[in-house]
């Protein structure tokens, strides 16, 4: 990332934090959107708390789906799991056609209202990109490299740990980033089933015809998604050797 792009991201981050900590200072910006003196800043809850709860929900779901998806991806690309590979590919394709609302709606009768159905929907929805990219990453290791690893006398576990996974990491991380961005947006729908998050702000705006609420809920969510994506990429380039290029 170039220096100017980095500065721009930091500026956006600063603006976002400033808005969440002291939203009333931004009231003049949003006030023109509303008529008849309707509140310009969300007043039915603490924006910072909602944003953190939103982020927390997304991160927990993403962590769980990363662990499960990477483990499954490794399993189906080993000889022991080879019989599951064709089905896994089809499931990845079919699963992506499931609308998030449907996943959410089906989870509600199972676990009730609140955070739980949202977590399940985010988890299930986040699995696919990571699983898909884990398989793609592991399968893209060049055969000569694998043969060299065998030639060095590595056993299957060593080969996976020291050769295949490091080579697959850039693709796997891309899947994680993708699923994070999708989930930051999807989590807003969770508010229709009473999960605490920024969707609350948007839905309050829809219900009371308050465009300022809708806009601030949407903007905070979008900025969070963008910053999360770029932040992850920055961390990868710094700490994961195979991601540097």
């Amino acid at each position: 990332m170039s220096r100017s792009a980095l500065v721009a991201r930091l500026a956006i981050l600063g603006l976002l934090v400033a808005f969440l900590v002291a939203p009333q200072a931004f009231a003049p910006v949003f006030a023109p959107l509303n008529e008849y003196g309707a509140p310009a800043i969300y007043d039915q809850g603490d924006l910072l708390e909602l944003a953190l709860s939103h982020l927390w929900l997304v991160l927990i779901a993403a962590a769980a789906s990363t662990v499960v998806a990477v483990a499954l991806g490794i399993f189906v690309t080993r000889p022991a799991g080879a019989q599951f590979l064709p089905l896994s590919r089809t499931l990845v394709n079919v699963g992506q056609t499931f609308p998030p609302v449907a996943v959410l709606a089906v989870a509600v009768p199972l676990v009730g209202f609140g955070q739980a159905p949202t977590l399940i929907a985010l988890f299930a929805y986040g699995l696919l990109p990571i699983f898909e990219n884990t398989i793609a990453g592991l399968e893209s290791c060049p055969p000569p490299v694998l043969e060299a690893a065998d030639g060095l006398g590595m056993n299957a576990w060593q080969r996976l740990r020291q050769v295949e996974l490091p080579l697959a990491v850039p693709l796997i991380m891309e899947g994680v980033r993708l699923s994070l961005v999708i989930n930051v947006g999807t989590a807003t729908i969770g508010s229709t089933v009473a999960a605490r998050g920024l969707g609350e702000v948007i839905i309050a705006g829809l219900l009371s015809n308050n465009a300022a609420f809708v806009l601030q809920g949407g903007l905070v969510t979008a900025l969070m998604a963008i910053l999360l994506y770029d932040g992850m990429r920055l961390l990868e380039q710094r700490y994961l050797p195979t991601s540097r290029n």
Partner: peptide, 17 residues
Amino acid sequence: NVVQTIPSIALFGILMA
């Protein structure tokens, strides 16, 4: 790309006004 990150219910709502 930025449009894509705006959550759908927000984009629906933003266009209403």
